[in-house]
Design a protein around this nucleic acid. Structure first.
Lengths: 210, 210
DNA sequence: AGTTTACAGTAACATTGGTTACATTCAGCT
DNA sequence: AGCTGAATGTAACCAATGTTACTGTAAACT
């Protein structure tokens, strides 16, 4: 039994299911920045996230990007679930936001386990539920917040995930994820610095008190 | 066996499951405009939509609204699914967009059927999948489109659902659903009228060629 | 018919955010 | 150290959207 599997999913799944996952799943390391899924890809396996963070992005027909949400330890990608079942293409792009480790499970198992294990059904339903809630939060941000508020929310989220107070991103990268321009981000970041909430450095931002 | 159940869900579910739905489900008529669920409500039963349309709305802390998507014939509300299981509150508001008929199924059945019937699992997973895709489309609209394009999209969707070429809404109502102001909508509608795509009337809009 | 009220049209203005252009500064390289 | 390219700072401008305020008009009611 892979130890990380037990540590991260042991409380969710019964021993028999853990055994099955252990048998058919393959352990995988992913480095920060690696693209894990592209829009239009067909999905052949399902990730169970052991450590690190994955960012999920949406892209429009002009190639403009937008950050949807992050997946973290104990999460799975809800979209892959039905992409597998329905044989449909991915609607989203997935990138490793940090170095990450995960267990890949072949898609066939997903439906079989859903019939067999109540705990698996619970996991899958909750996963969908969480993702829908994240989407609501994303929609709230875009629809109801102004760019300065969205930026603050983004910085909070990022520093929570990185677990220190430094965000290693350029203004351009942030602009892409919030679907705005670099100039706008620079402008708003400078305002936050003047409010003594952050300090700006080349290639990174220190979060003081946001 | 309720005939509408067979007509609308007969191709999805096996006879035995249809029988169960028929036994425990209750038939319900809803008039246009009736509020079917409020943010914060606990959910005790699950709707299977026979006819009509339900609009699903999101609201922020200031009471500002935003239309998320419509449910139509053959749909169910994905959010209720896990709200039931997880005993969590609704994140959304549901209103009858037209007169509608539906079958309400007690929540306990949902998890039981998920273990028992493959077709039910398929239905539930697909329902989640569809809802996530609608959310993507909504996010695309808000994030990537300008207000005039969003309005056109909205008018198209509305006239598709109402099945004629007349939309019975005031400018103010449209403004609420797109989360903008009445003046903005009036301005853009007038532009569309000048482009000969619609004609404006008090309390309704005729869609000519959009 | 006359009154009332909700709805719609529109001008003028404010604000936000996006764009262009250019200057400056830092990090990494030789 | 000096060079180079990427990253950042900033001004000036523009476009889209939101706001305020006022007018006109159709529907609904008595």
């Amino acid at each position: 039994m892979i130890q990380e599997l037990k540590n991260n999913f042991g409380h969710l799944f019964e021993a028999e299911l853990l055994q099955e996952i252990n048998q058919v799943g393959t352990y995988k390391d992913v480095s920060e920045g690696v693209k894990m899924m592209e829009i239009g890809d067909y999905v052949r396996s399902m990730p169970l996230l052991i450590s690190g963070a994955i960012k999920i992005l949406r892209e429009d027909h002009n190639g403009d990007e937008l950050l949807l949400y992050f997946l973290e330890k104990g999460d799975t990608c809800a979209m892959t679930l039905t992409c597998c079942l329905g044989q449909t293409k991915s609607e989203i792009r997935a990138l490793a936001a940090t170095d990450a480790t995960l267990i890949m499970v072949p898609v066939e198992k997903m439906e079989i386990w859903a019939g067999k294990y109540k705990s698996w059904r619970k996991f899958v339903f909750e996963s969908y539920h969480n993702r829908l809630n994240e989407m609501f939060a994303t929609i709230d941000s875009i629809a109801f917040l102004k760019m300065d508020e969205r930026l603050v929310k983004y910085l909070k989220e990022k520093s929570r995930i990185s677990k220190d107070h430094i965000i290693y991103s350029t203004h351009q990268e942030i602009a892409y994820e919030l679907h705005t321009s670099r100039v706008v981000i620079s402008r708003l970041l400078k305002k936050l610095e003047n409010l003594n909430k952050i300090t700006l450095h080349r290639n990174h931002i220190f979060i003081k008190n946001i």
